[in-house]
Write a protein that binds this DNA or RNA. Structure first.
Length: 426
RNA sequence: GGAAGAGUGGCAGAGCUGGUUGAAUGCACCGGUCUUGAAAACCGGCGUGCGGGAAACCGUACCGGGGGUUCGAAUCCCUCCUCUUCCGCCA
């Protein structure tokens, strides 16, 4: 959520930013509406404070009058309070309405894209930030997609997942499970040696947390909801990990805060059936190691670049062809100011698969989280939050299986051999 | 799941027979005096949101969350949440 003050002070900048997301001139009226409502809110607040102040001092008078036995005077003051009271109740209702109205509209305004974000409406408009410089691997005609390889080597069982749970819940077995576990450890080790604090968070969160990082209301339908207990299965570790700092006021010397966490991620993917859902391409439960940073606004873009480097380093070690896209305005998540997607090339499918998404949310999340720091001016300011996948597993496994298939079996990249305990999967 | 008790500022801990209590006191923290330096001692400062103001500062709200009683509530009532102890169950 953006601050009204920001919209007020940077109206034109906000508008041109939202145009990149495909906002029409008509949509942009929202900004002026918000400012108008906020003006009304301020006015009501001012009046209400005055009325409350009167009630307060009259009540104090009544107290002393009673103490000195002046009951009739006290009673007449009580009558006076009654009229103020009616007025304060009215103003309180008005204030609540203005606040709710304001909040509602503010929720519908996405983050303002960073200056460098290209405008555009679809993924076609995404900009290639860094491209794989080598030739893409070309497999011969007999090459198999990962779901066939998985069945052949009996390492991932899709029908079994259907039996136990439903579509999109694969079962990893034997060397498949071992590969999965090895990759998780590999990613966590790389993150912790880069200075991230390892966290094992709850996999289920309450409504406040889901709201804090913006899953509610933006992506509510994406989460599994446990209605009986009003809890949500996490769609990413970002939610519980970032919420560690909900309602916190940091010192400037606390920056940067770096955390990493491995969790399974649960996504309903409602409406995604039919397209790109084969095998591991899109599943309801997958494993992911996430990196999260909380930064001073002055440093958050340097930090973003260091996170990009971190993720790139992982892909290099995995020897996978990758490319980095800078998302265009229309493809950007609503909370994000800038997002870089990492895709790996899955050679048998001849498809690019998204395996990481690294974003700077600037103050959009911290505003809802009430995550602040005390600046050198002794005032509180919103911190910047950033996060990225490092990395999302299911699709990495898909690319690994496809790209590394040989007549003897699946070759395991050197960097992770120590983690999985074998160099050939057969 | 059942019973009892408790939730106050960064922490500890008063207040809780309703009335200048946003809240005593101690610790921590920040600034200053003193000191070669440090410690100690002493002096001063020290919550958050909203609104007004150029600012100093002022108004208002907040004592787990929400609601109620009252002219007035941290203090009384209802409800929810959390924690502690005891019983039950259990990896």
């Amino acid at each position: 959520m953006l601050l009204v003050k920001f919209l007020r002070d940077n109206k034109e900048e906000a508008k041109s930013g939202l145009r990149k997301r495909g906002f029409t001139e008509n949509d942009l009226n929202l900004i002026d509406e918000v400012i108008d409502i906020d003006d009304r809110r301020k006015k009501i607040q001012f009046e209400l404070d005055g009325v409350l102040s009167n009630i307060k001092s009259l009540s104090a008078d009544i107290g002393t009058l009673y103490k000195t036995g002046k009951v009739p005077e006290a009673n007449s003051k009580k009558a006076e309070v009654a009229t103020f009271k009616t007025e304060s109740e009215r103003l309180q209702r008005d204030l609540k309405m203005a606040q709710d109205d304001l909040f509602e509209r503010l929720l519908n305004i996405p983050n303002i894209p960073h200056n460098s974000v290209p405008s555009g409406t679809t993924e076609e408009d995404n900009e290639i930030h860094r491209n794989w410089t080598q030739e893409l691997p070309i497999l011969d005609a007999s090459a198999k997609p990962h779901w066939e390889l998985a069945e052949e080597f009996d390492i991932i069982d899709f029908p079994l997942g259907v039996k136990i749970t439903g579509a999109g819940f694969p079962v990893f077995k034997g060397k498949g499970a071992r590969l999965q576990r090895g990759l998780i450890n590999f990613f966590l080790d790389r993150a912790t040696s880069a200075g991230y604090l390892e966290i094992i968070p709850p996999l289920v969160v309450n409504e406040d947390s889901a709201r804090g990082t913006g899953q509610i209301p933006d992506k509510e339908g994406q989460m599994y909801h446990i209605e009986k207990d009003e809890l949500y299965l996490i769609p990413t570790a970002e939610v519980p990990v970032t919420n560690i700092y909900r309602d916190v006021i940091l010192k400037e010397s606390d920056f940067p805060i770096k955390m990493t966490g491995y969790t399974p991620c649960f996504r309903r993917e409602a409406g995604a059936y039919g397209k790109d859902v084969r095998g591991l391409n899109r599943v309801h439960q997958f494993d992911k190691v996430e990196i999260v940073q909380i930064e001073h606004p002055d440093n958050s873009y340097d930090t973003l670049m260091s996170m990009l480097d971190h993720v790139q380093g992982l892909l290099k070690e995995l020897e996978l062809p990758y490319r980095i896209l800078k998302l265009c305005g229309g493809d950007l998540g609503s909370a994000s100011a800038i997002t870089y997607d990492f895709e790996v090339y899955s050679a048998a499918q001849r498809k690019w698969l998204e395996v990481s998404s690294v974003s700077n949310f600037e103050t959009y999340q911290s505003n809802r989280l009430k995550l602040r720091y005390k600046g050198s001016d002794q005032k509180n300011h919103l911190a910047h939050t950033l996060n990225g996948s490092a990395l999302a597993l299911a699709r990495i496994v898909a690319a690994l299986l496809e790209n590394n298939q040989t007549s003897e079996g699946i070759r395991i990249p050197k960097a992770i051999v120590p983690y999985v305990g074998f160099d050939l999967l057969n």
